[in-house]
Design a protein around this nucleic acid. Structure first.
Lengths: 208, 208
DNA sequence: GTCTATATCGGGATAGAC
DNA sequence: GTCTATCCCGATATAGAC
């Protein structure tokens, strides 16, 4: 593997483990057993590394937004988003200060979040139209708010409570919360029980 | 007003406006038109200031947890909590990194959050017992999760979206979200419409 | 209590040899 | 591509005069 790729992987790991703020360029170089000078040969600095990571995250999210729109896909979309957000969780833990420190990132991530929200609205509206969900379009809007909030902030919330974030299965906990929010709006004869079971079994998507 | 108090007020304002990370001791001194040396006479350093602010926040939350438990008090409690959290919002914007930088704060805030959660559970259970809310105790647990998540993370979420946090009325937006989460669980003849109207009118508590 | 001046320290960044 | 050595700068913190 090329050094420049290794730098990204190790940086991501360190940022997630100890926070971006507490991770210096020297830390990264040391963890990789290379010299700081070498690191600066590959990336102009920490901001360069972070920008590369952000671009990689954005590419991931964009890639998984190519789904059709049946019911299961709604949760699959959430699952894949959460999986990626978990992988890049350092970005969301202190997005405010990262944004102010590294200009340009804020807008990128904000645009992406807006896009994700719109995608979710599309999926929700589809579920409403085909009768899986019952509710006015105002209800859908408010549901969308709660779902977005849960999607983007649940990892922070778990961390605030002191829960470990190392296990990627934590995303199922978020999915369960979202399922519960939607629960009152499912039509009686919908297939929501199947979804609930898949979440509980952590078998929403086949593990690779 | 004593200098030591002025330091706390200005620090809080700067932390909220530009982030704790981007605010140096010199910034604080400069904003107050005092010398950095003077600032260090009153506080050993930034960590000392932040600890004082945290203690002040904790005292505020503890003070407002002395309420009885009728329905309105549930939202009033949320309102006062949100108001305080808005006042000290810098603490929640990057709680992870602040915690790792200033040891001791993490545990304090975590304990407090746990206490707030328990208080909410008590209020919710009361509403369930007196029939205002319908739902199993499992439902109450899951509702509590969503409400806590919304309570502690909504400000972050708004900021991520790029919404301004300067207007304290933003807490009503959070209250509306929480109301909507509870909405399906209200008994038909409960007084929830009154609450909804109070939130919409931003008249839940009389302004002082 | 408050100031000025200064010491210290750590992270970011570069130059130049290999 | 990688290393060593070094510079630079900004933030923290202290000393001592007023």
């Amino acid at each position: 593997m090329k050094t420049s790729e290794k730098i990204l992987l190790i940086s991501l790991d360190l940022f997630n483990r100890q926070g971006e703020r507490n991770t210096t360029s020297v830390d990264i170089a040391h963890e990789l057993d290379i010299s700081p000078g070498n690191l600066y040969y590959h990336y102009k600095g920490k901001d360069d590394i972070i920008n590369a990571l952000v671009d990689s995250y954005i590419a991931k999210i964009n890639a998984i937004s190519q789904v059709s729109d049946d019911h299961e896909d709604f949760y699959k979309y959430l699952f894949y988003c959460l999986e990626s957000m978990h992988l890049f969780r350092f970005l969301f833990q202190n997005i405010a200060e990262i944004s102010s420190q590294y200009p340009g990132i804020h807008n990128k991530l904000q645009r992406l979040a807006k896009f994700q929200r719109q995608h979710l609205r599309k999926l929700l509206t589809e579920l409403q139209k085909n009768g899986t969900l019952i509710g006015s379009s105002e209800d859908i809007d408010l549901l969308l708010d709660i779902i977005s909030l849960t999607l983007f902030q649940s990892l922070n919330y778990y961390q605030m409570q002191g829960d470990s974030l190392t296990d990627p299965d934590i995303v199922y906990r978020t999915l369960m919360t979202i399922y519960f929010s939607l629960h009152p709006y499912y039509r009686e004869d919908s297939d929501n029980a199947k979804i609930k079971q898949a979440i509980l079994n952590k078998s929403l998507v086949s593990k690779t």
